[in-house]
Amino acid sequence: MSSVDMYLLSGVAVFAVCAYALVVHAHLIRKVIAINMMGSGVFVLLTAIARRGDETDPVPHAMVLTGIVVAVSATAFALAVVRKLHEATGHAYLPEEGEDAPPDGGGG
């Protein structure tokens, strides 16, 4: 197995682990971390794909660079929404099925 293959599989594994955690964990900060890391898994995949040929392909690199900046923007906004929700309801997670809904969940 070449090192590019290892990184391809690593990207897939990161994506899968984070997809599992995204569904299973209730705390919203964990969900935000999971989404951010899922993105990183995709970036690893893209960079490894760029490395397959004899030469490195700069187009996926530019896409990943753009992706990292978009990811930090989205993460910052998501965290601000989590803080707003926490201010409004006192919880950092969304109401579960069968659980009493917080008094006013409409923050953010």
């Binding site: 090192s3 290892m6 690593s10 990161v14 899968a16 682990v17 984070c18 964990r30 971390i33 890391m37």
Partner: peptide, 16 residues
């Protein structure tokens, strides 16, 4: 490369 590739999903799992 193997160590790095292996530690990424493990770290993701541990973090989450």
């Amino acid at each position: 490369d193997g160590l790095l590739a292996l530690s990424l999903p493990v770290l993701a799992w541990r973090a989450l």
